[in-house]
Computed example of a mutant assay.
Amino acid sequence: MDGERDDVLHAVSSAVLAVTRHLSVREVLQVIVRSAQRLLDARYAALGVPDDEGAFAEFVAEGISEQEWEAIGPAPRQHGLLGAMLREGVPVRLPDIRRDPRFDSWPRAHPVLKDFLGVPIRDGDRVLGIVFLSNKRTPGGFTEADQRLLTMFAAHAAIALTNARLYERSRELALVEERTRMARELHDAVTQKLFSLRLTAQAAASLVTRDPGRALGELERVERLAGEALAELRAVIVELRPAELDRHGLAETLRKHVRLLDRLHPASFSFEEGEVCALGPETEAAVLRIAQEALHNASRHAAAEAVAVRLGCEEGRLVMEVHDDGTGFDTAAVSGHGLGIASMGDRAQALGGSVRVVSEPGRGTLVRLEVPTG
């Protein structure tokens, strides 16, 4: 039993550390699922968090590729065996899930599951979600000892998930306070500029016929005030952190953006996520902006058939790559401001990182971002 307890504590430590590293709730769910999959050597693992409308607010899985998920379709609803587990809140261990009377059919592209082990993740009497494993790689299926192990793991996972939610809510409250402060600053600074701009324009209009020289001076002041107001607006916009990042984290936000581009453009857009990387809120926002700039270039200028995005960690550094098979260009012939290269470089440099653009005519383009995670 001591050995089992040590295995559980080792597996759950990564989920707990994920919370302390300020990852989103969804990323904590992914860490929990991966830990459970490794702990009991299962081919498939999943975790579902129910909503109040008969579906799942969050559903993450391991062992299924992005392409397979696309073919399977929407996340399951709270019916069949999963619904029964949510209602009853007790562990379920089966030699063959397909023979259970509560089993419902799968979508055509769904992998075939056989042996099954699922346990609730509970906070007191409340079921926060269910974690389940299928197709144990070791012959013989899941054992009673496996069930004890996963139940113990789920108890620790409940703490990690609850803490992640509390942290995310506190971060959202802080974000609301920060946006309220920025709105006040925007109102005070930009409104004053725009008011001055309007008065100056009116003065210029009244002087055009009787004093063209003074009117020209007032128009120059209009131009200056407009530039200052624009600078104020840009400063505020740069500071705003996209709301999607607070709800889903960097990886899922970028995945959804790539999926949207895949639907909107004739080129094929794909997303690959490696090891989960812990980043601060400002770094996440900057990385997302750089990725969006690179994807904008690929979708508008590359004439590519395929665009691939990769996100992961390598030796303590976040690495994000956007690669397309399009027309490419001569990097030596493009100025630093071309294709937003300077903007991407400035954002990366502010984070202590770098952006490298590799391209040749006819050979596509690679944008590689590296940012320290510490």
Rank of each mutant, 00 (worst) to 15 (best):
M1A: 11
M1F: 07
G3I: 06
V8H: 09
S13H: 13
A15E: 01
L23H: 12
E27Y: 02
Q30S: 12
V33E: 10
F56S: 08
F56A: 06
F59Y: 15
V60I: 09
A61F: 02
E66H: 09
E68G: 03
E70K: 13
A71H: 11
A75M: 02
R77M: 01
M85I: 15
G89I: 04
V90T: 12
P95H: 09
D96R: 01
V112A: 10
G129H: 07
T143V: 01
F153W: 04
A154G: 11
H156R: 12
V176N: 08
R181P: 04
M182K: 10
R198I: 14
T200M: 14
L216E: 15
L216G: 05
E223Y: 09
A231Y: 07
L233G: 09
A235Q: 12
V238S: 07
R247T: 05
H248L: 12
L250R: 02
L250G: 06
T253V: 01
R255G: 01
S268K: 14
E273R: 10
G280I: 04
V287W: 00
L288A: 11
L295E: 08
S299T: 04
A302Q: 11
C313Q: 15
G316H: 11
M320C: 13
V322L: 03
T327H: 10
F329C: 09
T365E: 09
L369Q: 04
